[in-house]
Design a protein around this nucleic acid. Structure first.
Lengths: 292, 292
DNA sequence: GTTATTGAATGACTTTAGTCAGATAATTTC
DNA sequence: GAAATTATCTGACTAAAGTCATTCAATAAC
C-alpha cells in the first residue's frame, strides 16, 4: 500500500472518530450514560425481547439487567415476561420512554443536518461518498431477500432502474411502473419473484423474474446502486434469481438488454448466458438465454 | 431534510462506528488499555512534551501523569525534565516503546488494508469518497500556511495542478516543475510566496505569487483538491495570497487563465478582478488584474 | 415426572476513565 | 528577592462499564 493512501485513510478515520465522539457527547447531554441511552434506543417503538437486545448490543446478562432496572427506575421502560415463553422477558418503552427516544432521534437528525450543512454546494456528492464508504465497508453483509413487487422499497429500486435506463439509452424517457402495477402478480411466486439486495436496512440492488413461455421465465430489471458497484453484487443477484427460477420449476431463462449497458452484457457472457434469437423489440438490442 | 437522506447518514455512521470499534478492539489485543495505547502512540518517534500530549489528547493532568507512570513501569517510555524549562517534562519512547508503537502502526495499516480490500475493483473510488467525507467534515479546520516551494508537499500539489491543466486544456501535456526549480526563489519572500492549504496533515490546495514588474506581482498555480471543492477554499486561498502580496509591498496583481477553467474565471470576476490586456501567450486565454 | 437447559437477575467484584484538591519545584513578574 | 504563575505529580475520590459465580423460575428433553 502506498504511504499516501495510508495517510488518507488515517485522516478519514480521525474525521469520523471526531464526528462520532461529538455525537456521543451530545447524547450524554440528556443526563444518562451512553450504555443506558443505547439500550433505550435499541428497545425501539415496538419493544424488544431482552435476549434480542443483548445479542444486538453485545452486553453481558448482568449488565443488561442492571441497565434495564435503571431505565425502569427512571420510568422510561417496562420489562414484563414474554407470554409465549415466560422465561424470556420483553422490554417496552413507556410513553415517557418513547418521547425520550424521540429526543435521541432528534439529536441524531441534528448531527446529520450539521454534517450536510458543511457541504452546502455539494450535498449530493457528500451523500454519495458516504453511501460508497458505507456500502463498501458493509460489503460482506449485503444480503438478498425476496420482496413483494408492490413494496415501496421495491418500487424505489425500479424507479432508480428506469432513471438509469433513461440516462443511458437514447430514445428512452424515464418510464415508470404504474401504481398499482397490473403485472405485479407475475413477479410473485408461484409465477415469478422479486429479489432485493439490502445493505444495513437500505436497498442496494434488485432483480426480478416473470413467466415468459411454458417452462421458461424472463429475468427483468437487474439494478445495482452506484454505491455498490464493483462488489460483485450483480453477479450475486443473477445467481440468486437463477436459483429462484429453478425452485419455481423453470427449465430455462431468457433476458434482453441494450448495447448501452456493456457491463451487464459482459456479466451475462461470463456467467453462462448465450445469445439467442430476438424475442422483444426496442429498446432491446441483445438477447440471451440460459438453461437451468 | 429528506427522510431517506437521514437513513443514508445513519447507515454511514453505523458503518464507520463498527469499523472504528473493530480497530480499537484490535488495539486492545496488545494488552494495554486504549488510553495508554493512545499516549504511547502520541509520544511519537521523536518524543513530546507532556503539556503537548495533554493538549492533543485532551487529558487531565492527573490522568496523563498516571498513564505515563504506567508506560514507564512497562519500560515503554521515559519522562525527563525539558532542559530549556525544567518545569516542563518531555516523554520519549525507549527502544521497546518504539517497537511497540511500530506494532500499533502495523495494526493500523492492516485495518486500512482491510478496508481497501473490500473494494478491490474500486480502490481509488473508495479513497476519493473517504477524502471527500474527511475533508468536508473537517471543512472548518482547513488552514492556510506559507510553505517553501521546494517542499515535497508543495511539489506534489503542483504536480496535481499540472495534471489537472493537462486534463482540461487541449494542447497541454502534463508539464512538471524541474527539480530543483530554478525559479523557486521568486516564490519565496521577499519576492513572492507559496501558500498551502492543510486539512488534517494533508494538503488540499495551494496558490503562489511571484514578481512580475515593478510593484506588480502575479498569482500563479491556484489549485484545490477535488475533495475540497465547493467549500469556498479557492476564495480563501485568493484572499490569503492577496493579503500576502499587500504585506510584501505590491500595489497590484495580475494573473492569466484559460477558458477551460470557467469556475476559476467566475471566481476572479466575483472577487474584484478586472480583465486586462494579454501579457502572456498560450495556454492563457483570459487575463485579469486587481489593484490592492 | 425427574433432570437438564435456558433466560434473566443478583451480589460481589475489577478495570478503565476521569475529576479535584493540594503539594512541589521551576520559572516569571514585579 | 518576594510573590505570582506554570507544569507536573500525588492521593483520594467517583462513574461507567464490564465480569463472574450463583440463584431462581420456566421450559424442554428424556
Amino acid at each position: 500500500m502506498r504511504q499516501s493512501d495510508l495517510a488518507r485513510i488515517r485522516r478519514f478515520n480521525r474525521a469520523v472518530t471526531r464526528e462520532t465522539g461529538a455525537m456521543e457527547e451530545s447524547f450524554l447531554g440528556r443526563g444518562r450514560p451512553l450504555g443506558a441511552a443505547r439500550v433505550l434506543w435499541a428497545i425501539g417503538e415496538e419493544g424488544r425481547d431482552v435476549a434480542d437486545l443483548r445479542a444486538e448490543l453485545a452486553l453481558d446478562s448482568g449488565l443488561m439487567s442492571r441497565l434495564l432496572r435503571g431505565l425502569e427506575a427512571e420510568g422510561m421502560a417496562e420489562v414484563a415476561p414474554d407470554p409465549t415463553d415466560r422465561r424470556r422477558r420483553r422490554a417496552t418503552l413507556t410513553a415517557k420512554g418513547q418521547s425520550e427516544r424521540a429526543e435521541y432521534d432528534r439529536l441524531n437528525d441534528q448531527m446529520a443536518e450539521g454534517m450536510l450543512a458543511r457541504a452546502p454546494r455539494h450535498r449530493d456528492a457528500l451523500l454519495a461518498a458516504m453511501d460508497l464508504v458505507a456500502v463498501t465497508l458493509n460489503a460482506e453483509r449485503i444480503d438478498i431477500r425476496p420482496a413483494d413487487p408492490a413494496d415501496p422499497v421495491a418500487r424505489a429500486c425500479l424507479a432508480a432502474y428506469f432513471a438509469l435506463l433513461a440516462d443511458k439509452i437514447d430514445g428512452i424517457t424515464a418510464a415508470h411502473v404504474p401504481d398499482p402495477d397490473p403485472e405485479a402478480a407475475k413477479f410473485r411466486p408461484p409465477q415469478g419473484t422479486f429479489l432485493l439486495a439490502w445493505c444495513d436496512r437500505l436497498p442496494v440492488g434488485c432483480v426480478s423474474l416473470k413467466p415468459l413461455e411454458e417452462g421458461v421465465a424472463e429475468v427483468k430489471r437487474l439494478w445495482v446502486d452506484p454505491a455498490a458497484r464493483g462488489l460483485g453484487l450483480a453477479r450475486r443477484l443473477m445467481r440468486a434469481v437463477e436459483d429462484a427460477a429453478r425452485d419455481l420449476g423453470y427449465r430455462s431463462l431468457k433476458l434482453d438488454t441494450n448495447a448501452a449497458l456493456p457491463e451487464a452484457i459482459a456479466l451475462y457472457e461470463r456467467s453462462g448466458w448465450a445469445p439467442t434469437a430476438p424475442y422483444t423489440g426496442f429498446p432491446a438490442t441483445h438477447w440471451f438465454a440460459k438453461p437451468l
